[in-house]
Nucleic acid binder design. Structure first.
Length: 711
DNA sequence: TACATTAATATTTTT
DNA sequence: TATTAATGTA
């Protein structure tokens, strides 16, 4: 424990406290006197602070007290990285920095809100005013202010993945690409190619050569499609996820005055999960920090798990060489897990020689050995988990402090069934999103065209919901309406065969004409009234979907504007299980089920990792590429280091021949390659679920009552 | 040209 | 398997 207290203690209580000066500075800035105030900014921190850091260890305190210049914090798992960010935020504000001039970039909005909330606890409510969010949402906010400088119109909207795919499908269909007997990539693949090229800073040709060699001879076609795709997006006033970052960098690089303005505005930049940023995000940070270099990045190279999205681990590995005078601080005391858990985790990760060296030391003592559980199959694995959850709850461990983690969203289906049978409430994170279901997208399409009438993709969707309207007719209507500037009140052209659909469209147009300035909830309510008949006609299970839509109404209540609501639903969609009939509220006791990716940054007392089997972790998809295999290793590391008190790795035999695998009858029955037999002996208690003690015998539908286990 | 049917074909992770 | 592209039919 360290106490950093300076000689000059009562400074901040003086009439002209640093807070006050900071406030004045903020005002000056708002008046546009940026050049003037910048020099006047008080020398925050340094020796004059009386901020209490007695809660922190030496390294954490050092990071918290750091003020100027680039700072790299290498924070091992569970080393108090969030706490460090929270305290530094609070400390800067305590020492007079205007919270509105601190930029906190995190991986999810939830993470930044949580940090700001905690900072409020450490200091006071001012911390709530810090500008925080994801890279994408921050870019979205800024770009809306400067839309015209990047050749977009005001009021652009964001495409989610499926919107982007639809656009790709349109383009694909327009051209005559499906030539000869040659196979042509599908929309999904085409989008992957384009996005990969953008995110990894490679040409389309290079991407095809590296990642899609079988399509390499189609390079010209793909190039053409990519070009059309970019042009179309702009014409429709739509941005995809990548654009948000790309256009931001474009703005910073091509408009020095704006770059300067923004950099001066955000005087202190803090970035969480830096190991998962890509080259565009890095360029953006360079631009934003250009005026002051006050850039603090926090991350753990051992937890870099997003390379599939272009994340470049080199960002963190070479940060020290990319900026001048970088201060590096390593946080290596682990406050989360017990030593036995850390021992295995470290041993697993240290086989990756490319990383910064890891030496995690537990602050806690004692602890049990992790368990390696050998299950017969998928179902026994599920039964074991449920059984164990129940007995732990008996022992007084709350359900909410336990989690089940897995590589891929689909791997949890058996566990979900078993949990439902046993009546255990759970919440699932990762995988399919609520906003990706057809009926929600339908409802959102109506609102999207209201916010952005140029969004022809959404027009297509809306129009094709009408009876008798297919791709051709909807295109005709759109072509006509485009000339009318999509003026809702002027919608009278509709060469319908069916009069009912024609009237329906006019009804919708009339509705849209009246919703200007209305509260999002009210708009949505009207949209749903109009959508109701379509819903009943299209879906057999419309009742269930209706409940989802009602949930959407509930969610819409907290938004000020339609645009804000749509932006958030595409940038941070609510998790599917948080909505709907069997929704579990946050406060209720529940087990968490999560993909390992979505579990990043979180922790639980007991953690179960499902299917720690070669082919699952590492995924058989990654087996060709050594770099990808190393990423899978890190994935396992992330999973294991989520556990505070006890860790269960489960290894079922997954050789079900009825399961469908692309390579044909694959069988997975080997323990993951990341844990050797030797390591099993050294670090684990091995449990074999054998005859007699087979769990799940109470399952009335189970057929495993007489099953023989030979383990 | 809309809508239904059949054939083909790729499967993870997420802003 | 489930999703999507191609083809057939009304």
């Amino acid at each position: 424990m360290v106490r950093m207290r300076s000689a000059v203690q009562s400074r901040s209580r003086a009439p002209f406290s640093l807070e006050w000066i900071g406030f004045l500075m903020g005002c000056l800035y708002d008046e546009g006197m940026s050049g003037f105030h910048y020099k006047m900014t008080p020398r925050v921190g340094d020796a004059s602070s009386s901020f209490d850091v007695s809660d922190l260890n030496k390294e954490q305190a050092e990071a918290v007290m750091h003020t100027r210049g680039p700072l790299l914090v290498l924070a091992g798992a569970g080393s108090g990285k969030t706490k460090t960010l929270v305290y530094r935020m609070a400390r800067l504000i305590h020492d007079g920095v205007d919270p509105k001039r601190i930029l906190l970039l995190t991986f999810t909005r939830k993470a930044s809100q949580e940090m700001m909330r905690r900072a409020c606890g450490v200091l006071d409510a001012r911390c709530q005013q810090v500008v925080g969010g994801t890279f994408h949402s921050f870019c979205n906010m800024v770009l809306h202010q400067y839309a015209t400088q990047i050749e977009y119109q005001n009021g652009f909207t964001i495409m989610d993945r499926s919107d982007a795919e639809n656009l790709m499908a349109l383009i694909r269909k327009q051209g005559d690409y499906q030539k000869k007997d040659k196979r042509f990539p599908k929309k999904n693949t085409l989008l992957d190619m384009v996005s990969k090229s953008v995110n990894t800073n490679r040409s389309i040709e290079q991407v095809l050569m590296d990642d899609f060699p079988h399509f390499y001879d189609l390079t010209d076609d793909v190039l053409e499609i990519a070009k059309k795709y970019h042009i179309q997006k702009e014409a429709l006033n739509l941005m995809d996820y990548d654009d948000l970052l790309v256009k931001m960098v474009h703005l910073l690089n091509h408009h020095p005055n704006i770059r300067q303005q923004l950099s001066k505005k955000y005087q202190y930049i803090m970035v969480d999960e830096f190991q998962d940023t890509n080259h565009i995000q890095l360029a953006m940070l360079k631009g934003l920090a250009s005026e002051h270099q006050n850039l603090m990045v926090v991350g753990d190279d051992a937890q870099s798990i997003y390379s599939f999205r272009g994340a470049d681990i080199q960002n963190i590995l070479t940060f020290e060489t990319m900026f001048d005078n970088v201060t590096t601080i390593r946080l290596s005391t682990n406050y989360r897990s017990t030593q036995p858990i850390l021992d295995v985790s470290s041993d697993v990760i240290n086989h990756d020689v490319n990383l910064y060296e890891k030496a995690l030391v537990a602050a806690r003592s004692g602890g049990e050995k992790p368990k390696l559980v050998e299950a017969f199959d998928d179902m026994e694995q599920a039964d074991f988990v449920v059984d164990r959850l129940l007995s732990l709850r008996e022992e007084g461990v709350s359900l909410t402090s336990m989690a089940v983690l897995f590589r891929s969203s689909s791997h949890s289906s058996q566990v979900e069934l078993a949990l439902t049978r046993a009546n255990i409430p759970y919440k699932k994170y990762g995988g399919f999103k609520f906003t990706e279901t057809a009926h929600i997208k339908d409802a959102m399409a109506y609102m999207k065209v209201m916010v952005n009438p140029d969004d022809e993709l959404s027009w297509h969707r809306v129009l094709q919901l009408l009876d008798g309207v297919g791709p051709k007719l909807s295109q005709q209507i759109i072509n006509y309406q485009r000339e009318q500037q999509f003026n809702f009140s002027g919608m009278d052209y509709a060469p319908f065969k069916k009069k009912a659909a024609h009237d329906e469209l006019l009804g919708i147009a009339a509705l849209m004409a009246t919703t200007n300035g209305m509260a999002p909830t009210d708009v949505l309510q009207r949209v749903l009234d109009a959508y109701q008949p379509v819903l009943k006609k299209t879906y057999d299970d419309f009742h269930k979907r209706e409940q989802d839509l009602n949930a959407l109404v509930a969610l819409s209540a907290r938004f000020r504007s339609l645009a804000a609501m749509l932006d958030e639903f595409t940038l941070e969609p609510p998790e599917s299980s948080q909505v709907g009939a069997d929704a579990v509220s946050d406060d209720d006791e529940h087990v968490v089920l999560s993909t390992i990716h979505s579990a990043k940054g979180l922790e639980w007392s007991r953690v179960f990792v499902l299917s720690v089997v070669d082919g699952y972790i590492p995924s058989f998809r990654s087996l060709q590429d050594p770099a990808q295999i190393e990423e899978e290793r890190r994935l396992l590391y992330v999973a294991m280091t989520r556990a505070k008190d006890d860790l269960y790795l489960i290894k079922p035999n997954l050789d079900d021949p009825s399961a469908y695998y692309p390579m044909g009858g694959m069988s997975f029955s080997q323990l993951t390659r990341f844990i050797s037999p030797d390591q099993v002996d050294r670090y684990f208690d091995t449990w074999s679920l054998g005859v007699g003690e087979a769990v799940g015998n109470d399952d009335p539908f189970g057929d495993d009552a007489g099953k023989k286990y030979s383990l």
